[in-house]
Nucleic acid binder design. Structure first.
Lengths: 116, 116
DNA sequence: TACTAATATATGCTTATCCGTATATAAAGA
DNA sequence: TCTTTATATACGGATAAGCATATATTAGTA
């Protein structure tokens, strides 16, 4: 993991929003991110693929659902960077709205929520 | 300062190398960075301009020399991100070589060194 | 097997970004 | 004013990256 790979992965707002939500919640499936960010599914999926390729996130399939979490081998410094970033920006938009919105995603919106 | 602006600024290796050296040394002029990184002056200058536009760095002219330092209004979280990144990568290439190389830039290579 | 739901990927288009080379600009000194 | 030095910027080219839309792929169920 080189630093510019991490920073490039985080340099897109959609990707950053995904990572910040995953950082706060431990693990999230695509459908949750899609609803929380109110963006199209292909767009979310594409950005998640980029994050996965950069080894920032890793995925886990559970039936039709795919959950994403921070990569198990993310270096400590990179994790600290993410945490410090969250501390600095969680009260900013769109990150504040994202978190509130995620909390409001109804559990019956997707069956994946029951198992999370 | 939004996070993706910071991360975009850092997503290029040349720019990241510049910022890491500036972070370690407080203030550096273009000629020092150009020699330490062993890259062309226009390339360094262009990247410094990008960092300045993103308000990651600020500059100060002293005669024919221009010195760059971290921007005075860099948010605390952003500074912490930079510091943690340095902690994590300073022993990696090319950052390790950059620092060693900077130490070896002879003082008589440029008159700017005398005043620094 | 067919159908449905969730997700990943392809396509074509537009815009952004980086590069080396050349040169413009700013500053200093004769 | 002219010359030199340091730095900034312009230019043209190549490549990367993001987007919406469409559709392929995977998993589960009837």
């Amino acid at each position: 993991m080189s630093p510019e790979i991490l920073f490039r992965a985080l340099s897109d707002e959609t990707r950053l929003r995904c990572v910040m939500l995953v950082l706060q919640h431990g693990e999230l499936c695509v459908c949750k991110l899609t609803e929380a960010l109110n963006l199209s599914q292909p767009k979310i999926s594409r950005h998640l693929a980029t994050l996965k390729a950069a080894r920032v996130l890793q995925d886990r399939r559970e039936g039709v659902w795919v959950h994403y979490r921070l990569h198990a081998q993310l270096p400590a410094w990179a994790l600290t960077v993410l945490q410090q970033t969250l501390c600095g920006i969680q009260a900013q938009e769109p990150f504040l709205s994202d978190s509130l919105h995620l909390k409001n995603v109804p559990d019956n919106s997707s069956l994946c929520s029951i198992t999370e």
